[in-house]
Simulated scan of single mutants.
Amino acid sequence: MSNSSVKPTEMFRHFSLGVGPMSKNTVQACGRIANRHGIPLMLIASRRQVESKKLGGGYVENWTTREFCEYVRKECPPNSLLICRDHGGPWQHPSETELDDESAMKSSLASFEEDIRSGFQLVHIDTSLERRGVAQTKKALQRLVELYAHCHDFARALGRSVHFEIGFEDQSVDTDYPPEFSDKLHDVLKNLTDRKLPLPLFVVAQTGTKILETENVGAIKSAPLAVRHSIEQLAKSCSEQGVALKAHNADYLPTEKISMLKRCGVSSMNIAPELGVAETRALVAVLKEFNLNAQLERFLQIAFESLAWKKWMKPNSQASDADRAIIAGHYVFGTEECRAIKDAAESACCRIGKTLDRLLQSKVEESVERYVLASVGNVGAKHD
């Protein structure tokens, strides 16, 4: 079916796949896939990826919040992509690392306000972080309710409709303990309803999925039966309380594990790092194919020197410098030096009648489509 006449508020009721907008090529690839299958995809921009200039900006294409929204609306089929904030909240942007509580909350509120003004359709409020660490649950819940109320009131004052996703825990390899999760969920939802606030659409739980390097190291792979049982209980708890369960860090999963999450009651899942790595590997392959050795060496060098790979490494990692550069490659796509490297690759592609960006997009599409087909099947007519 075509989604061209479906209202954005109705789109979230279908199974939703959240995709990190790692580059313009990722956005373009997602627009095509959504149009091809007749289902909307969520573009889930973290604050590190896309942020207003006055709050420090982001690394993806140097887009501000407003520029990102304008690009999606201009370049992609109508209603194919839902614009969403991923991991909004205090201490979620590198510029906030040293801020005190009041300043970090003020900064995150300013970020949410710009999201809403720019037309974001869903915001994820994540209060799992604390200055230099992980927040205690009680404090995380207090901050979540405060931010939620402010965003709701701000959107209503502008005549906007904004949906919510909530999370208050740092990502883990294991699943949440279902009874404990149910109690915490009950507490936060009661706080919201007591303030006459609408329920969130999605609640993030620990579903045994976690990314390190280029692998999903979560318990979903090492203990699938136990994870399945826990997720079924987590999903039941969410359903009984009127919200939908969402899984983060679902990258690098085989088809059967993607399908398992859906069968167990997961209503939505996010992927992002896998797509950046897919595009990086494709770019490296093109540079090798055309013997652009100087450009290849320089690209790997600037990616490695960015140190953006550090957060993704396993303890006592055996990864080479080149492996680390591949993990970090997409973080430097927006730099002037990387753009010059891509210009050289584009010129080489043109000489044989190919387009660099289309080659890169095709590799991103392969990863995204694997999740779409495993989750919802071939639900729409082909348009390509």
Rank of each mutant, 00 (worst) to 15 (best):
F333S: 03
A308S: 12
E130K: 08
R281S: 09
H124T: 06
E130Q: 08
E232M: 11
Q92T: 09
F290E: 03
E165Y: 06
E70Q: 14
K382C: 11
A303H: 05
D187P: 02
D115K: 07
K288V: 08
V173G: 02
S230H: 09
A235C: 14
G329L: 05
N293T: 08
K288G: 02
P77Y: 10
I211Y: 04
E305F: 06
N270M: 08
V379S: 15
G265I: 12
G218K: 08
S268D: 09
P179W: 13
R32G: 01
K190R: 14
Y371A: 01
T97G: 00
A205V: 10
W309S: 05
I341F: 06
L373Q: 07
L41D: 02
K190I: 02
H124A: 04
W309P: 03
S375I: 04
T214Y: 04
C84T: 07
G265W: 13
D357G: 00
G88S: 06
K139V: 09
E102I: 07
C151Y: 02
I116E: 04
L307H: 15
N79K: 12
N25P: 05
G329Q: 06
H229N: 09
A205L: 15
D170F: 10
C76I: 03
V227S: 05
A45H: 02
S52T: 13
L122M: 15
N35S: 14
V203L: 04
T65R: 10
A344T: 05
Y252C: 03
C69M: 09
I302V: 12
T193S: 14
K354G: 02
P21D: 11
K196L: 08
S161E: 15
E61P: 11
T175G: 01
S237Y: 10
Y252K: 00
I271D: 12
E297L: 07
N316W: 14
Q28R: 15
K342P: 01
D187R: 13
N249Y: 12
H383W: 12
S52V: 07
T137A: 11
H152D: 07
G88D: 01
D174Y: 14
T26S: 04
F112C: 00
R156D: 12
T175N: 06
L201W: 13
G159N: 04
K7T: 13
A381V: 14
S80F: 04
I211R: 01
S222K: 11
L122T: 10
H383D: 14
E366F: 11
Y331L: 09
R339S: 12
E366C: 07
P200R: 08
T175D: 06
V203D: 03
L129T: 04
R370F: 02
P178D: 05
R48I: 06
A303G: 09
V50S: 00
R85V: 03
D176H: 04
L197Q: 08
S128T: 10
K138S: 11
A226E: 15
K184C: 07
K106S: 10
H124D: 14
P90V: 03
Q142L: 11
A140L: 07
S347Q: 15
D343M: 10
L199G: 05
L122W: 12
P90Y: 06
A135H: 09
C338V: 11
E305Y: 13
E336G: 02
L360N: 05
A219G: 05
Q241A: 11
N249C: 15
